[in-house]
Simulated assay, not measured.
Amino acid sequence: MKKILYVIFTLVYMGISQAQTTKFTNHNEIGVITYGPVFLESGLAIRSFNGIHVGDHYATGVTIEVSRFPVNEDRKFWSVPLSAKGRYYFNPKRRISIFSDLDIGYNFTFLNGKNKIENEMYRYRGGLFVNPQLGLRLKSPHRDHFWTLSLGYRFQQFRETHFSNYTYTAEKQGPIADDNRLEGYDYRQDNKYLLHRVAIMFGFGF
């Protein structure tokens, strides 16, 4: 998967570096990440897109984001997705226009660090990040600036490894002991999360 992402980022970079009659664009957004329409397990996301316009209808570039949101109601995780973006404007000449985005990249988890407490420790790894969205762009009447409001779907992979010395009861699924357990700990449990979220974003750009 990382090879595929490398090819995607390479193509985006080649398109930017070889473009002759293009215009730079920057778009910054802040918004809410939620599990559903009633704002269950809501979190916050801040992201920035930097790229180029390719003609009037298209834009491409790279997006970086920092977000934090709960999982299973009691755990909160940091996420740093880095993705290649493709954008299409349906009516670019109008002051109010519809646009669509598609981000594909990798979800980094280094901001979580190693969560270590007495008798247990957590380690984290990221995975695939996909974020299509649809939004409205409102151009400023006096400057080459714009405001946006968008609704998107997010899919991201997240892996958690739990090392511990605890003894679990029969009612609770216990961790498994294997040769990959961390030195000093008796048990290891690997959890893989496939996260599906809705994102409501408000942005400003030029």
Rank of each mutant, 00 (worst) to 15 (best):
R125N: 13
S140I: 09
H145S: 08
L82A: 04
G152D: 00
N115R: 10
K76P: 03
T167C: 05
Y124K: 04
S83P: 09
P141L: 06
P70S: 03
R123Y: 01
Q133K: 11
K93Q: 15
G113P: 10
T169D: 15
Y166I: 14
P141W: 05
N115E: 13
R68E: 12
S100I: 13
A84E: 02
S67P: 09
Y124I: 02
S150A: 07
I117T: 12
F90G: 09
N107D: 14
K76E: 05
R123G: 09
N72T: 05
G135V: 03
F77E: 03
N112G: 00
P70D: 11
F77G: 01
S100N: 14
I64P: 02
K85N: 15
T161D: 15
I117V: 10
K114I: 12
N165R: 15
P70F: 08
P132I: 09
Q156K: 05
Y166K: 11
E118N: 11
F108V: 07
L151A: 06
R143K: 13
K114F: 13
Y124R: 04
G127W: 00
G105W: 13
F110G: 00
V71P: 06
T169A: 12
E73F: 08
R95G: 14
W78K: 00
W147I: 02
I96A: 04
H162F: 14
E65Y: 04
S100E: 10
F90T: 03
T169S: 15
T167S: 12
I64R: 09
R87G: 02
I64S: 11
A170F: 09
P70C: 08
L134H: 05
Y89I: 06
K85C: 13
R123M: 04
R143Q: 14
S83R: 09
T169G: 14
A84C: 01
L134F: 05
G127E: 04
D101T: 08
K116H: 11
D144G: 01
T161F: 15
F108E: 00
S164Q: 12
S150M: 02
E73M: 09
H142I: 05
Y153V: 05
E120F: 12
G105D: 14
Y106F: 07
D101M: 07
I64D: 09
R143N: 12
R87M: 10
D74H: 00
I98E: 00
F99I: 04
R159C: 02
K85D: 14
I117S: 15
V80A: 03
E120N: 13
L82E: 05
G105R: 08
V130W: 03
W78V: 00
N115K: 07
M121K: 15
K76A: 03
L134K: 07
L134G: 10
Q157W: 02
G135L: 07
S67Q: 15
G152Y: 00
F155S: 06
R75W: 06
L151M: 07
G113R: 08
K116Y: 14
S150C: 07
S140V: 12
T148A: 11
R154I: 00
S79K: 02
R94N: 10
S83L: 02
V80G: 01
K116G: 11
Q133H: 12
